[in-house]
């Protein structure tokens, strides 16, 4: 007899739990107030507006540094999530047992280039990261950031990342 598919709530709970564990493990993500929304394996990051994100109070405009940090967080979580996804779906990691100490290590940023296209307005910002290449050792990620209109980016970035070494030491 064919194997029955898992009930949808079981699948969702497993994935949401794993994502929440990953995101909440990084203190700086909480400091900036960044949230992640998931559809299947696709993530969208949100930077809810707060006064502490302002860099130019006269315009006012979001701080370029806060914007850069938002995109870098989106890129790193995207890479961490892609890695974790395979492990939870493959049954290698049980999401109910995830703690900071046993989460797979996050990749390290090698370089990050931010292209400021428009002034960041004092309202929520969104970002989506695309992994253009993920090798065993290096990854290249592109991130797009927007506010009111998905097609009018206010910022974009490209970064290279050093992937964590696998636990068994095989590279």
């Amino acid at each position: 007899m064919a194997k029955q598919p898992e009930p949808v709530h079981v699948v969702k709970e497993r994935r949401d739990k794993a994502l929440a564990a990953l995101v909440s493990s990084v203190p700086y993500v909480g400091f900036l107030g960044i949230q992640f929304e998931r559809r299947g394996d696709e993530l969208t990051a949100t930077l809810p507006y707060r006064d502490m994100l302002i860099g130019n109070p006269i315009l006012p405009a979001l701080h370029g540094g806060a914007t850069a940090a938002f995109l870098e967080v989106a890129a790193i979580i995207e890479l961490g999530w892609a890695n974790l996804w395979g492990k939870i779906e493959g049954g290698e990691i049980d999401p109910s047992e995830i703690e900071v100490q046993n989460l797979p290590r996050l990749p390290k940023t090698i370089d990050f280039t931010v292209d400021y296209l428009r002034t960041g307005l004092p309202r929520d910002a969104y970002a989506r990261a695309r992994i253009n290449r993920a090798g065993r050792r290096y990854a290249s990620v592109h991130v797009e950031g927007w506010q009111d209109n998905r097609s009018r980016l206010f910022v974009q970035a490209t970064g290279h990342f050093l992937m964590p070494e696998s636990a068994d030491g095989v590279e």
Partner: peptide
């Protein structure tokens, strides 16, 4: 500041906080 940590296992500061410092200083 522990709130700026990017790697919870080592306590290393997040690159984003360094970006903010570099951007402010450059400006």
């Amino acid at each position: 500041d522990p709130r700026f940590v990017g790697d919870p296992q080592t306590g290393v500061i997040h690159g984003g906080a360094i970006s903010a410092l570099m951007d402010t200083c450059s400006g």
